[in-house]
Write a protein that binds this DNA or RNA. Structure first.
Lengths: 133, 133
DNA sequence: TTGCTCCTCACGTCACGTGAGGTGGC
DNA sequence: TTGCTCCTCACGTCACGTGAGGTGGC
């Protein structure tokens, strides 16, 4: 039921660093569904599924909701097809661009907040030795 | 009941960018409690409360839980006192140091994840023009 | 006095964590 | 056949969001 190119959920968790619960939840939300199942009901992930999972994992720090990530995957899948009419392709490209721009903005904001946090932390650290030195 | 140096929750929300719900929740968790209340029950925040709120807000991006932030505030308050015996002070300083080190580590990890996210995003963007150009 | 601000429940949400009880795979 | 992995509920958690229904403040 399982050939050499498919993986059980435990293998996938080990390879991606995601929890079993996260893998099942992402499937439940329609984000990444395993290619197949064994007769007994075990999930079977193919290499392409794992690449999808790694993409989602990589994008998560940009503060997307799972719904937004799903939309990004949908657009990516759509654009990967070659039977797409020009108008649909152009529209999808613009939508994906918009997502990526918002994500870039949020990355910038997160970086600024990290700087502010580190500033606050060094201020705290310095208050440890207020008079002495 | 309210003098010139105290603020209603709405003023505080405007000044800190935190929601009313967040201010009330942080109080409920024992993180930042307003200095007083009016006879009618309105919260009254003093300047010192607002500084506490701004510190918590600044530290949040370092991925602390509210419980951890509470512990940091407790240690900071303790260390601000001058009636502290040397042993307690030294111990508290070490504890706070440990927190700050862990926070610095997490900031570093978050920064690396942001880089990875931006890499994944530019890879996505490039896949938009696979053949043309 | 009017309306704007504030109050306290209390249920909802997002992205999972964590058992409980049961079965598949090599 | 044994045990290790996997399955599906389903309740719990964290940090709030979002009304509902009622009252305080200038």
């Amino acid at each position: 039921m399982k050939n050499a190119d498919t993986f059980h959920i435990g293998d996938v968790a080990a390879r991606t660093g995601l929890s079993l619960r996260t893998l099942r939840y992402w499937e439940e939300m329609g984000l990444v569904e395993p290619t197949g199942r064994t007769d007994g009901g075990f999930r079977l992930y193919a290499e392409v599924d794992i690449q999808r999972l790694l993409l989602v994992r990589a994008l998560k720090p940009a503060d997307f909701t799972l719904e937004e990530l799903q939309e990004i995957l949908r657009l990516r899948d759509l654009l990967a097809r070659d039977d797409l009419d020009g108008a649909t392709r152009a529209k999808s490209e613009r939508e994906l661009e918009r997502f990526l721009e918002r994500a870039a903005d949020r990355c910038k904001i997160l970086r600024e907040r990290l700087v502010a946090a580190e500033l606050a932390m060094s201020a705290l650290r310095e208050s440890l030795t207020p008079t002495a030195d």
